[in-house]
Design a binder for these strands. Structure first.
Length: 464
RNA sequence: GUCCCCAUCGUCUAGCUCGGUCCAGGACACCGGCCUUUCACGCCGGCGACAGGGGUUCAAAUCCCCUUGGGGACGCCA
């Protein structure tokens, strides 16, 4: 018809969207966006036992959070059996599919035997030429080529050759009338015009089966792109214990969706030495050719640091809105200032919120060590005289504050840190954080005096 | 067992298509230092890899073969 690129993401709603799944979703989405094509969402829910509505909703929510919008769907395989039946009938008519009445036990026995003889475990095709009619308990099998080689044209891995002898006459329709995964996927991709089919590495061995179906139907075989798996730190397939939790967990942990996408894409794909990408840049620069061929290990630390980088590069207003919605602190110039000053000190949105909330509440505690080291008897007078000077200030400007600093410093014959450090602890409860001017600005004059007095009381109380 | 895929610092990777510019570059982590009232940020420097063995070649991380290692798949699951 036309050359529009159509990609798809086909999760089975049997669990949440985790890192690996999200990555193939992102690759498909990016490629469609990069090529100005279409991105389709399709739920492969033919496994009625394990599919749940909750999983479906969670996947939808995760995709929305990541900003992976789709142009068509979501489609549901369970609602498309009539389409599959139509194509199965074509195959039967062409004599390229046949009914088989072997029991599962019989087939299992064949496989055991073949295995024992050192051959590939497979169905031996005993019903292939029997011309059996459809009967209770019969399955529909495809007539697979007996010889020759299947060439998978893979845009990522290059051509892959698999001898047809490796495959058997696999089942395309179960005895209960439902269709198997390989058949449903193929018909879906075919009828939805999907190409390239971008999916995980673990599907390469399914691909020859699907090619057999396309060819039996006399249809054009799409292009494939198999992306390598994501591994855990032990080089084993990623699982919960490696931190392969739901992608939504990262939202809870305070990650930015763009950072998650950046990390996930860069794991297995590269663009020279560049590490940091905005979503826009990714769409501009993404290409299938630059996806690597080897599996990659998921590194939570690197993802964290990419997130920190995205935080730093984020617009203050944008960060402000997120912090406000997650913390109930209303958006204000003060919040914006706080975000601006603290965003380079936080690796996640949660850390950011934690570090600035002291400016929006009167309830905060001194960190034990910070108080012990800085709120000492010797700091009392210094703090006291600074509070007095502050009280006398007319304009709460940096110049006036500096003047107050200098006076206190001169009066007590001390260096700046002797005042600044206890002051920061008095104002924020911790020994580290923003510069003292920013800290004062965020606290406000009256609150600053109040907190200094509170700190002095604390020193007095602590003494006894 | 059989088939398929893969192999550069601890990890993600550049380089491999067109062998020499690579005694291998960047990033995370780690270790020093600078900046600085603190902590971050930033900047500078350090540590650290072509799995092994054979070829081909004047020359190999780059091409070929073998070995080893890792991953995946062999269902009326997806």
């Amino acid at each position: 018809m036309d050359n529009t690129i159509i990609t798809r993401f086909p999760p089975s709603p049997t669990g949440s969207l985790h890192v690996g799944g999200a990555r193939t979703a992102v690759f498909n989405w990016l490629y469609a966006r990069a090529k100005k094509g279409k991105f389709i969402l399709r739920f492969e829910d033919t496994d009625q036992e394990r599919s749940t509505k909750e999983s479906e909703e969670e996947i939808l929510e995760a995709m929305e959070w990541l900003g992976l919008d789709y142009d068509e769907g979501p489609f549901y395989q369970t609602k498309r059996s009539d389409v599959y039946q139509k194509y199965a009938d074509i195959l039967i008519e062409k004599g390229l599919a046949y009914y088989c009445t072997c029991t599962q036990e019989e087939v299992e026995a064949m496989r055991e035997k073949a295995k024992a003889e050192g051959r590939k475990p497979k169905y031996d095709g005993r019903c292939r030429e029997k011309g059996l009619k459809k009967t209770e308990g019969a399955v529909l099998r495809i007539k697979a080529p007996l010889s020759g080689t299947c060439i998978i044209k893979d845009v990522i891995k290059g051509n892959i050759a698999v001898p047809y002898e490796e495959l058997d006459d696999f089942v395309i329709q179960r005895s209960d009338g439902t269709f198997t995964y390989n058949f449903a996927v193929t018909i879906d991709d075919l009828t939805m015009g999907v190409s390239p089919v971008i999916r995980g590495d673990d599907h390469v061995s399914n691909t020859p089966k699907q090619i057999i179906i396309y060819e039996a139907l006399g249809e054009k075989v799409p292009e494939f792109g198999h992306v390598p798996m994501v591994l855990g730190s032990d080089k084993k397939r990623l699982s919960k214990r490696h931190g392969a939790m739901s992608i939504l967990e990262y939202k809870k942990l305070g990650y930015l969706p763009d950072a998650v996408i950046n990390y996930i894409v860069r794991l297995g794909w590269s663009y020279g030495d560049q590490e940091f990408f905005t979503r826009k840049e990714l769409i501009e620069k993404f290409s299938l050719e630059n996806i690597g061929r080897s599996p990659g290990v998921f590194d939570p630390e690197k993802m964290l640091s990419i997130n920190a980088e995205h935080m730093q590069n984020s617009d203050d207003d944008f960060l402000c809105r997120i912090i406000s919605s997650q913390s109930k602190i209303p958006v204000s110039d003060k919040l914006k200032l706080a975000v601006n000053v603290y965003k380079s000190r936080a690796k996640t949105l949660i850390e950011l919120e934690d570090s600035i909330k002291v400016y929006f509440t009167d309830e905060f505690e001194y960190s034990e060590k910070a108080a012990k080291d800085n709120l000492k008897e010797s700091s009392k007078e210094i703090l006291k005289s600074f509070a007095d000077k502050l009280g006398a200030i007319k304009d709460f400007t940096h110049d006036e504050i500096d003047a107050a600093f200098n006076q206190v410093l001169a009066d007590h014959e001390i260096k700046f840190p002797k005042l600044a450090k206890p002051l920061r602890v008095a104002l924020t409860g911790t020994a580290q954080g923003a510069g003292i001017h920013e800290t004062l600005d965020l606290t406000g004059k009256d609150k600053a005096i109040e907190r200094i007095e509170k700190a002095i009381m604390w020193i007095n109380g602590n003494k006894c």
